[in-house]
Nucleic acid binder design. Structure first.
Lengths: 321, 321
DNA sequence: CTGTTAGCGCGTTCAC
DNA sequence: GTGAACGCGCTAACAG
């Protein structure tokens, strides 16, 4: 790897001139501009961003920590966030925490060591420590989809109550009175929020309040299947089930079909397959890409010294079947 | 952010001692070890990785450029690669090229500027320039799933011919003689390879050789749907269709169902929904996570000065329906 | 307009 | 066992 000195030598100028030319400083002669550009090209010179950022304040890179790349909801969110950063001239480095707070901690440490300009993260359950220490270290942080108690950072979330309400009212209108919920783990805020919203709306509507209709799962496919089995084992079994994310829905769908049960399944997050199966799933759509983009915009604002407020995004019911 | 000087001051030692303690150099007294650790903890000190890597050769970070995070095949591959790197004590930064070689170029430049230890990438179609310039700059590169002409880097791919053969023989055994192919873009190696493997095996087996049975698409959902429509418009239409990736399969499935056509669809890549729909799809399974892990291992070997050979992975037919 | 120089934060000699 | 000093590659301030 060539350095600025190599370029200077080849161009026959000083390193100061090279630096000026390459950074677009107007205080350079057309002549040296030409020579420097040529030398840089010939050497395939790429400035060392690490050395650069040692002098500068910024690095131009933003850390993005995601719960699980394999969950399309988060993959979409990451994509939306990234596009927004790209448009703002910044590069995003994606870390996959894999729903494991130990891995998350490791990546957050790396982000911190790399001195990224800011961190966008959908926190894991378990501990708020990772996010908190970033905030305390003065690193701009924005939370994605999940809140964290005691962490002073803007959050972008979906309106959980609205989503649950849309789902339950839809099912009630279709005649269901005994509705099950497959919830995510209570270790993450969305898991908790959905359970309490579900309970309160169900009660307001006078539907069957049996506590065993709420089943907690780990947010993964297998967990969704297991929770569905438990619901189907009840007597009487619920006639409809609301599932909190797409992965669990796929497990639940298979379990329900496997038992030949006549249970109507409604899912959070819209995915292609949900309208491909028979019967198709009604869904509570959450525009993950939009969430990612909004969150990135907040983060950029925060990095630029602003103090953006948290944002709650609406959900939308798409009835099917 | 505190620096090594702050720690040294608080601990009452020199920065040299701090550095030695924190890097585990045995030439330190138990006493100063204790004081330094305490000071570092109190300050929440994290060494500046950028400054560190300016002195050291390595950065401990590996760049991973993926064609499309939203394609589960690549998400799985990224996950597999990442796990492998984590196990080797390295952190990976994921870049999403989004099937766009301009974005890819931007990320590769960033990787290069950051002086990552190595780059694992599934190259975009269009230009091999990005990968080539990395290789020429002496940065260890391993290619994922797609090859690139004229780029001297190890590649991990699946056995395309084997996969196509499994699919076609399966369909032939079920009585099909007129089989369509929805192929990825010819700009990427897997797209080209699948077309030629398809044609040669089809001919060897004496099946219908009509050229219009091969339809090129962009690898996305909509492209798959369009290609399927074109196939269905043929007269006679094919009785079976092989689709080159999961995204296109979902589009094709919907198109076929929308026309009420009796066409058997076989897909590359196994995804949950493929056994949930009716009829379920037979698939050519490709273990993406394994591919990612193998590729990462090659890259680590390359970084350590080895010269690993390219690897071809087997595919597996999962008949359904 | 340009060359020189002082750090940015850190690891590593080299003396002590 | 420890401190001082140098240099990694770069930008910005300062002279000229």
């Amino acid at each position: 790897m060539s350095t600025i000195h190599d370029v200077a030598r080849l161009a026959g100028v000083s390193i100061g001139t090279v630096s000026r030319v390459l950074s677009g400083n107007p205080a350079t002669s057309p002549e040296s501009r030409e020579r420097v550009r040529e030398a840089a090209l010939q050497l395939g010179y790429t400035p060392n961003a690490r050395a650069q950022s040692l002098r500068l304040a910024r690095t131009g890179v933003i850390g993005l920590s995601i719960s699980d790349v394999r969950n399309p909801f988060f993959a979409d969110a990451a994509h939306g966030a990234e596009q927004e950063a790209l448009a703002a001239g910044r590069v995003t480095m994606l870390a996959n925490a894999d729903e494991d707070s130990a891995i998350e901690a490791r990546y957050l440490r790396a982000f911190r060591a790399q001195r990224v300009d800011g961190v966008l993260m959908s926190p894991q359950g378990g501990s708020a420590e990772g996010a908190r220490s970033l905030v305390e270290a003065g690193i701009p942080v924005v939370l994605l989809n999940r809140t964290l108690d005691g962490v002073d950072a803007p959050v972008v979330t979906f309106d959980v109550r609205q989503g649950i309400e849309q789902a339950i009212m839809h099912l009630r209108d279709r005649g269901h009175r005994r509705i099950g919920l497959i919830a995510g783990p209570v270790s993450v805020s969305t898991g908790r929020a959905r359970v309490s919203a579900f309970e309160s709306i169900r009660d307001e509507l006078g539907l069957d309040p049996a506590p065993e209709l709420v089943q907690l799962a780990d947010g993964r496919r297998g967990g969704g299947a297991d929770a569905a089995e438990r619901l189907l084992d009840l007597s009487p079994a619920p006639t409809a089930v609301l599932s909190s994310n797409a992965l669990m829905s796929s497990g639940a769908f298979e379990a329900i079909r496997g038992r030949g049960a006549a249970v109507e399944l409604v899912s959070f997050d819209d995915q292609d397959w949900m309208r491909l199966v028979d019967p198709p799933l009604s869904v509570i759509e959450q525009d993950a890409a939009h969430m990612g983009a909004v969150a990135m915009r907040l983060l950029l604002e925060l990095i630029d010294g602003g103090s953006p407020r948290s944002v709650t995004l609406p959900t939308r019911l798409i009835p099917r079947g």
